[in-house]
Amino acid sequence: MAAVSLVRSLLPALLGAGLLVLLAGCGEVSAPRMMEARGDTCVEPVEVMRRDHMKLLKHERNQALRLGARTERYSLNGCIECHVSPTASREDPSSHFCLNCHAFNAVRFDCFQCHADKPMPDSGRVHALNPNGAQHALTVASGEELANDAQRLVALEIKAQ
């Protein structure tokens, strides 16, 4: 039982060292560089989408799959048609709107194990809010715009509490 007592005596030291490592890792965190969407507006305001997109998607998924009640508005394909470039790749999350943010927030999701992760260039389908079509190239959103978004979210968060 010498091993057990050794571990016991070392435990506080180990915990302390771990804490130090964690603290050392802390610092300025910059928001991920998000891709800009095609079209001028989303199906819901950005605050709603940031917080509740998964609820809208889950509701849509159950209605569409189990009852055949499909709405263009909240479909996952609709999200992808506006937000993801046809050249985006799962291997490079920074090129993919959804994967980029999920990676930044460390939230695991498995939509793209089954669902197409980018628009089909020749599908001919265009989301109602996307006047430019899936072919339209995407650019990285400006840092200023993201900072404004973040401030608005924080303000709402405070108001909600």
């Binding site: 079209g39 001028d40 507006t41 989303c42 199906v43 819901e44 305001p45 605050e47 709603v48 917080r51 509740d52 609820k55 809208l56 889950k58 509701h59 809010l129 006047p131 709402l156 108001k159 909600a160």
Partner: peptide, 22 residues
């Protein structure tokens, strides 16, 4: 109806406006 968080109601006006877009 999906069970949305409070946030949606805070931004409710904007959500309705979102229907008539650009």
């Amino acid at each position: 109806k999906p069970d949305l968080s409070r946030r949606q109601f805070l931004g409710g006006a904007a959500a309705v406006a979102g229907l008539a877009v650009a």
